[in-house]
């Protein structure tokens, strides 16, 4: 990749020869997960990562967020190697993980509070956003009073409020029913276009990956030493019906084949 200096080509997330393995506590030996992996993710890209369970997708997120440290190699966020990456990215976990004792606005305010903001200021910042996220009038409700889709929107709002330009979404819609899921995908796409952030999105669902992303990374062999990468040739804005184009259907077959092939081995 030549240095062309364009804003769009700014690397926001980069792995350089990253090696990582989990230590088995009982036996003392370690299980390699990543081996000299290189990744480049550019500003305002939407990346999805697909792969079978246990292929190390979540480990990748744990490394990016700073919950784990690589054995070798370096991780750059916005062009910098940070001493601690904790607090540098916005992470949205698989289950909404809202605190049951906090109201909706208090839950959304959590990253602002952690960063030392005033509660009242945070509240003022959040109220208009709640409206935008379709959560108007919910600010004083508790999480268990909301539907699954709404809780995921609160969880996403909380991720956005981390203030980071790199958002990591770990199978955020996997627990939702099919119809809510589709509308959440469309909703997420408009939010992403509006907020000008980079999103890395883990999923099992090939359709979801094709609909949302610019590039799809396939996590296959273990340890992962290179990623198979697929560019999605669809212009934006996209519609769900775009997935029925012949080129996309072919790509889907191809993707499924790749994933299936890996499961056997």
């Amino acid at each position: 990749m030549s240095k062309c200096g364009l804003e769009m080509n700014k690397r926001v997330l980069e792995f350089q020869e990253v090696t990582f393995s989990y230590k088995e506590k009982k036996q003392g030996h370690s299980v390699p997960v990543l081996d000299s992996l290189n990744i480049h993710i550019y500003d305002r890209e939407f990346i999805t990562i697909v792969g079978a369970s246990g292929s190390g997708k979540s480990t990748l997120f744990r490394l990016i967020t700073g919950l784990e440290e690589p054995a070798k190699g370096q991780i750059f966020i916005n062009g910098q190697v940070h001493e601690s990456r904790l607090g540098q990215t916005g992470y949205m976990p698989q289950h909404d993980l809202l605190m049951p004792w906090r109201t909706i606005s208090e839950n959304a305010a959590l990253p602002l509070e952690v960063k030392g903001g005033h509660k009242e200021e945070a509240r003022k910042k959040i109220l208009p956003l709640l409206k935008e996220f379709g959560l108007e009038g919910m600010e004083n409700r508790f999480p268990h009073e909301l539907s699954g889709g709404m809780r995921q929107r609160v969880s996403f709002l909380r991720t956005v409020l981390s203030g980071s330009n790199v958002l990591l979404l770990d199978e955020p819609f996997s627990a939702l029913d099919a119809i809510t899921r589709l509308s959440m995908q469309e909703w997420l796409m408009t939010q992403w276009e509006k907020r000008k952030t980079t999103i890395v999105f883990i999923t099992h669902d090939v359709n979801e990956a094709l609909f949302l992303s610019d590039r799809i990374f396939i996590f296959s062999e273990k340890p992962v030493c290179s990623l198979q990468e697929v560019k999605v040739p669809l212009p934006r804005p996209r519609k769900l019906t775009d997935l029925n184009r012949p080129a996309i259907l072919e790509l889907k077959e191809d993707l499924l084949e790749k994933l299936r092939g890996k499961v056997k081995t």
Binding site: G66, G87, V114
Partner: peptide, 9 residues
């Protein structure tokens, strides 16, 4: 939740 808080710094 603890890990989520950690990722927030």
């Amino acid at each position: 939740l603890k890990e989520l808080l950690l990722t927030m710094g």
